[in-house]
Design a protein around this nucleic acid. Structure first.
Lengths: 333, 333
DNA sequence: TTGTAGGCGTTATCAG
DNA sequence: CTGATAACGCCTACAA
């Protein structure tokens, strides 16, 4: 492997000049630049990324912290990230987290180990106990689809989304509308529901009865959605419409409802949350979340924060839009 | 950020000793090890990963090269990779490739830029023109689910899989069995079909008529599968069973068949390839590929090849197993 | 605009 | 077992 010195010798210039050429500095005469480029070509020189990172104290890498249960959504976010990264030569580090402990380690290590210049946390916040620590490291972190005023974030307003979904069902004539929610912090089993506030508001303003048993919190998974549906189905007065806080849960709901002998949307209407090829195939009426765009925008924000850490963090909000398909209809009576 | 020197000073030892402690060398007395550990704790020292990589010429990172169209399969592979990586402290670099050019760049750069110690190529081979170059770099690469005798690989035998699928359909009584195949090299639109050999063999040995029009090659996507189904549906004598070379294509086939007015499995039976939660939900009868296990095994192989590059590469094969669900039945007559 | 030299935080070597 | 010390390959002042 040739080094920068070999190139400098071959081109009969100093290593500084080679470095400048590599980094696109304008402070190089055209003649020398050509000589350097030729030498690079001749020797097949490729700068060592590790040495560059070491020398410049910038890794040109971004860490993506992702809970695997996101499923295909992750792939869409990834596309957005790539959109923003196209041609700017950043590397992606992938860190998957499936438990609370892994999440904590991920946040701790991304700050201190210096493998990346910043991090994107997908559908994830740092544990409350870690927030101060992460903040203290002044390591740029952008949260996707969750909000915390102390961090940069890009996402949608989940309460507004739930509100829209409830309003849509109410508009179809439903009076018994349930919510299968997820936790705001997936890894906090006792935490608040992500959509509960918006759901309650919509229930109130639609003049519907406010029944606690219609507010189910479930695990962020197919199984979680299915289990919640069972609970709703056992109620003396089951709901006629269900708003579900994620696609994974919604699929579980559809499956469980079918096994329960319910027809959809005949016996029960279902509104999902976020979209994918599968939701489309299943005909799931759902609240579309511009996931790819969120990934793209968040990456831009992160790159910006890395380049200039001065600005105070903001929460950037995107619109959702209801995708009407085949799982909603008017109530039976 | 404290450095190794700060720790050495605090612990009143040399930097070499600190380094040994960090790296778990046995050549340290218990007394000093304790002093060092205490100093590390006291100072909150974290070794710089970049400096370590620079000093040791080992990044402790693996690059994952993945075509995004893999969809959820990628997530399963990822879990397998994480299984193998648990607790051994390697980092994952993610490189997505969606075109032939991106694929080529990925293979070129992973070798020369030195960001990772090895690479896992998912469902991907290097372009024929790049093979020699990659080989020459002596950069460890393991191919997943594709085979090339010049590289390490872990996967399944696609011909055997196709054969099983055809045999299964023939066993149900089908005589007109079609194949919707994908290219062996996804990015080579003129390349050979991945399953064609096994399909033909099975057709012959089942004593079925060998019809060229039953052998469709399609893009590795839902749309590709759907388009191929249209072509088969237009045939004067359409098949009564279809073997499809991927899950994505199979889903397109199901959708297109439904739109075509075909009932499944009444009018046509479908066998998919590889499995996911969605295939399960859809009731797709499919050839299960142990994707997670392939990811795990490939990672182990890669780590082995990094540790000891001497052994000649081998192709490691795993078994598939037919998952019988609801998309296959006997032919109508 | 250019070259030189110091520094980045480890690892690895080599005497002790 | 231990501690100096020389790499490692690049970036970035700084002086010219």
């Amino acid at each position: 492997m040739p080094t920068i010195e070999d190139v400098a010798r071959e081109a009969r210039v100093g290593v500084g000049t080679v470095s400048r050429v590599i980094n696109g500095s304008p402070l190089v005469s055209e003649a020398r630049r050509k000589r350097v480029l030729a030498a690079i070509e001749l020797l097949g020189y490729r700068p060592s990324q590790v040495a560059r990172a070491f020398g410049s104290r910038r890794t040109r890498a971004l860490e993506v912290i992702v809970p695997l249960f996101l499923g295909p959504i992750f792939l869409h976010v990834l596309q957005g990230i790539q959109d923003a990264l196209a041609e700017n030569g950043h590397t992606l580090l992938l860190r998957t987290v499936d438990t609370r402990e892994e999440r904590d380690r991920a946040f701790k290590e991304c700050c201190s180990r210096g493998r990346a210049d910043g991090a994107l946390a997908l559908w994830l916040v740092p544990s409350p106990t870690l927030v101060d620590r992460v903040l203290a490291e002044r390591f740029p972190v952008v949260l996707l689809n969750v909000a915390d005023p102390r961090f940069w974030s890009v996402g949608v307003d989940h309460d507004v989304s739930a509100q829209h979904a409830v309003e849509y069902c109410a508009g179809l004539g439903h009076r018994r509308i349930a919510l299968i929610d997820r936790r705001e912090d997936v890894f906090d089993p006792d935490g608040a529901g992500m959509c509960e506030r918006g759901y309650r508001e919509a229930v109130h303003s639609a003049g519907l009865e406010d029944r606690a048993e219609y507010e189910q919190k479930a695990e962020f998974s197919k199984a979680g959605g299915a289990a919640a549906l069972e609970r709703l189905a056992e109620l003396p007065e089951p709901p006629t419409a269900i708003v579900v806080a994620s696609e994974a849960q919604a699929i579980g709901v559809l499956q469980a409802a079918r096994e329960h002998g319910w027809r959809i949307p005949g016996d029960v209407s279902v509104v999902g949350y976020s979209d994918s090829a599968y939701a489309e195939y299943l005909g799931l009426t759902t609240i579309g979340v511009p996931v790819r765009e969120i990934g793209r925008e968040a990456t831009r924000v992160l790159l910006g924060a890395i380049a200039d850490p001065a600005p105070a963090p903001r929460a950037i909000m995107r619109q959702t839009n209801l995708l009407v398909r085949r799982t909603c209809g008017p109530p039976r009576n």
